[in-house]
Design a protein around this nucleic acid. Sequence first.
DNA 1: GTATTATTTGAGCATGGACTCAAATACGTC
DNA 2: GACGTATTTGAGTCCATGCTCAAATAATAC
Lengths: 209, 209
Amino acid sequence: MDSNTSSEKREPIQPRRAGGRQRVAELLAAASDLMAERGYEATTMAEIAARAGAKIGSLYRFFPNKEAIAEALLQHHAAIMNEEYEALAARAADLSPEELADILIDLMVILYPRVKSLPALMDARTDRAEIRHTSRSRALQGIAAALQVCASGLDATAAQDIAVVVLNNMKTMLGMVLKDVPTTPAAPDELRSMNRLYLAARLGSYQRE
Amino acid sequence: MDSNTSSEKREPIQPRRAGGRQRVAELLAAASDLMAERGYEATTMAEIAARAGAKIGSLYRFFPNKEAIAEALLQHHAAIMNEEYEALAARAADLSPEELADILIDLMVILYPRVKSLPALMDARTDRAEIRHTSRSRALQGIAAALQVCASGLDATAAQDIAVVVLNNMKTMLGMVLKDVPTTPAAPDELRSMNRLYLAARLGSYQRE
DNA sequence: GTATTATTTGAGCATGGACTCAAATACGTC
DNA sequence: GACGTATTTGAGTCCATGCTCAAATAATAC
């Protein structure tokens, strides 16, 4: 219906002074917190500015629109996740399936403080399908890689399939811990044990040592 | 900030003619479909009316506000779920843990066509926490009951804990089937086998026969 | 100190969407 | 067919929120 008829997608202005860089950081932090609390849609631009101690105009100086904030946050999250999954693959070699299972199941919980708005952004019903898919793929890839390192001989396809299931377990655990979802006290342990049982069964046959 | 100062919460007008009852049904069906597609927030009252072939004024005759639609839908869903879980408990007695696992894992998928908007309504970030919690509890209770029937001797607390995990597996399966989430083709089978493994391990010891 | 440029400010615009209401119309009943 | 009531209609109100912009202010360079 429209397209790039005239107004080019005005690209974000980069801060050029220390103060500006700090503002950007504060704005992103405020946005991340708010979106984690209320969700993407329910978080207003005015609120973001207010929580960062800035005025709405400052917010729009550095971010052309709300989407841009989401993108910046996802970008940031992606970097952190990459890092973390690489670290995991590095030490997965000398882990038993059970140990790997226990590490994975808590991984999102441990990462959470650094990527608070990730769940809100992944759930949001905007476009942005692309970057969301990328983020998810990266996680799956990271998990699959760790699985393959742990169970050498496991083929890539199976690793992907298992990763999908394990990623869901990780998300479930995060939900339980955040009390997004009311849970019985022992439920996390149940989840942990299911995850362990599953990976032991699925990776057990490939285990060297 | 406000409270019930004056305007009583005008209670919904009940249709008094056949035409009215049909309208209500059409409106609810349209709302359910749209909310399933777009989510609660993103679904507008105008769209709901339009899809039902009605005008906005008709919609507001039978539903005082958007929340009321959500409530009516959840009410409806609750009834269906109750029914289904009772039926399950009735036949759980002569099922092996593995069989029960396989039935449960697909239960949401099978139920889905009749409760399309349930996920959207459970995810929505409105108040309504109460009714949402009720809905979830009912599901957990239903699952726990089936587990206890299948594994007589399983105590109620453990049944609840296991139910929490199984319910999450059910939701995950629904997500996979609906392609809410991109998945490898074999991932559903992985999930199924994990669920079976888990319930077999957890309920196996109690099994009679 | 003066010029230049980055940053801040906040009133205000534009849009969309929840919700209202008085008048018109359809239905049912006698 | 006339009356009463249920239902329909849709233009219009209100308000929240994303976003704009010209003017003020602060930082930096010389």
